[in-house]
Design a protein around this nucleic acid. Sequence first.
DNA 1: GTTAAACGCAATTAAACGGTTGCGTACAGC
DNA 2: GCTGTACGCAACCGTTTAATTGCGTTTAAC
Lengths: 107, 107
Amino acid sequence: MSKPEASAGVFAALGDPTRLALVARLSDGASRSITELASGAPMTRQAVTKHLEVLENAGLVTRAREGRESRFVYAAEPLNEARACLEAIGARWDEALARLKTMAERD
Amino acid sequence: MSKPEASAGVFAALGDPTRLALVARLSDGASRSITELASGAPMTRQAVTKHLEVLENAGLVTRAREGRESRFVYAAEPLNEARACLEAIGARWDEALARLKTMAERD
DNA sequence: GTTAAACGCAATTAAACGGTTGCGTACAGC
DNA sequence: GCTGTACGCAACCGTTTAATTGCGTTTAAC
């Protein structure tokens, strides 16, 4: 399982447009090399490399060295935990709304 | 609706343990003052104030001035959009898995 | 074995972040 | 009207972040 605090790291990793786009792009399950991911991005390959390292440290992505290139693959668990975290917060809110509604009807 | 890039700001706001805890705490619908939220936190009231401003700018929280105190209330929409964003990514991943499974069974 | 592609490493820079401190202001209560 | 509470503002500081640049290394391909 996961403490809510552990998800903060995942959110921080997703909290950058470039990285969020990288994750979204990789979520189709295909593995991609760094230059492949960097082509079309408005920044250097090195910058993309750093973003990928951040994602890797957050566990959102896995690196596999193949010959002369590093290929990255999406990893599902951390994002699922983050999603569960948001759903827990949303559920708490929904229950609060339900309670308010009940109290309003009780008038 | 929302562009995926818009959710990055929400993730960035949630990407700090203190702020994530604040949001979780406020998700019960109750409004709380700054000192109320700062008491028990391992930092200054000013630090908490800054975190609340970040959350407010991300739209995750709403401030209402009441007399001499600022009370903060949870706002649901941005987190729901962020949740939808994560679900979209997860769904893409699930579809990819399903495709792989189909191809494996086709052998 | 040269060459060019794909990458890693290190230094550097500007800006943003997280946090503190000090001080001034608004306001509730006696 | 005074006093103390709850804030807001602004300066400041150390650290982290995002990004660039330059250079070296590995490896595929001819």
